[in-house]
């Protein structure tokens, strides 16, 4: 069947007009995400602070004296050129200990976040797809979530013994239920989509449906949640160390540095202020980053245009409307009574 081009008939549906230049779009998707990230001020600020802290953790210990060098003569020196953050009651350099503490804190936080994400994802997905497993796993996680996080972590540390690796294990047990819940609820939504039914109709196995097809769809909420776990586990680790149940001394962590400085807070403020500032800014940075990622990964969230342009247009419109309102005060809504008479 041949058709002349002047008839509206065509044997086969054509490819959409303009769909061909969409291929470039896919390629630039990553750079587009980076651009959007840079445009999201809060996320960008958080990300930058986190990068700085990470750089301090990586390079700080190389540039500072050993954080373990005890020097009796240098005890409790206030901040100076030689010791920018001062020295502690053993004469150790506080800057060096803060930098070394950053290593410990970030390592514990990041490792916990990764472990929690993997475990939480597995538990959440499995629960979403198996009714019996769902009952059991979700009741266990309810039980775990019923304890205050810090109390549960202390109990686990007491059982396992005071070791950095055990801190990670304890924090993973504490935070996995939160991640699992998020993953489960996202997976329940994805499971109802038609493509899952289509896979069943093709005869796909449960493993294939869950791990190859549903899993990639829960990655966005998982990343966001893992970011928050990152922040939470740094804070909880600091709290554990402050209570003496976390990273064992003499290894510095921001938490046990606070503990060391607690009794000397009036004589040597620098021993508590510097690690405190680092904890605060790191947590703030990670939370900003997490909020930003949640916005950026949410398909329904779209930063419209830059705020300034938008405000300018809005102001112009408001002004125009105001003049219009002045001119048309006579044309107020006519009341129904007035109309019927």
């Amino acid at each position: 069947m041949t058709h002349s081009t002047t008839t509206p008939h065509s044997a086969r549906p054509d490819i959409t007009v303009g769909s061909l230049n969409r291929i470039d779009k896919t390629r630039s998707r990553r750079s587009k995400f980076l651009r959007r990230f840079a445009a999201h001020k809060l996320a960008f600020t958080g990300g930058s602070i986190l990068v700085i802290v990470t750089l301090v953790a990586i390079f700080g210990p190389m540039l500072t004296p050993s954080p373990f060098d005890v020097a009796g003569a240098n005890r409790l020196q206030p901040p100076s050129l030689e010791h920018p953050f001062g020295t502690d009651n053993y004469g150790r350099d506080v800057l060096a200990r803060v930098a070394e503490g950053a290593r410990v804190s970030l390592f514990v936080g990041a490792f916990t976040a990764v472990c929690t994400a993997v475990l939480g994802c597995a538990v959440g997905l499995y629960a979403a797809y198996n009714r019996v497993a769902d009952m059991i796993l979700m009741r266990i996680s309810d039980g775990l979530m019923a304890f205050p996080a810090i109390l549960l972590a202390i109990a686990i540390m007491a059982a396992l013994g005071q070791q950095t690796s055990n801190v990670i294990i304890a924090l993973t047990i504490v935070f996995t239920p939160y991640v699992a819940r998020i993953v489960r609820s996202s997976a329940l939504v994805v499971r109802e989509q038609t493509f899952v039914e289509a896979l069943k109709a093709q005869g796909a196995s449960r493993t294939r449906i869950i791990w190859i097809n549903i899993a990639p769809n829960v990655v966005s909420p998982l990343i966001v949640q893992a970011t928050f776990v990152f922040a939470d586990s740094i804070i909880t680790e600091a709290a554990l160390s402050f209570l003496g149940a976390g990273v064992p001394p003499p290894a510095p962590s921001w938490g046990n540095m606070l503990l060391d400085g607690k009794n000397l807070i009036y004589t040597a403020w620098w021993m508590t202020v510097f690690p405190g500032v680092f904890i605060m800014s790191t947590i703030l940075a990670i939370n900003l980053l997490g909020d930003g990622l949640r916005d950026l990964l949410d398909p329904t969230y779209r930063s419209k245009t830059s705020g300034r342009k938008r405000k300018a247009r809005k102001a112009a419109r408001a002004a125009a409307r105001q003049t219009a309102a002045h001119q048309s005060t006579a044309s107020r809504p006519t009341t129904r009574e007035g109309e019927s008479s």
């Binding site: 038609t194 493509f195 039914e197 289509a198 769809n217």
Partner: peptide, 11 residues
């Protein structure tokens, strides 16, 4: 299937 938007895995 009916709904062409949810019948293909978006990822």
């Amino acid at each position: 299937f009916q709904d062409p938007h949810s019948s293909l895995n978006p990822r």
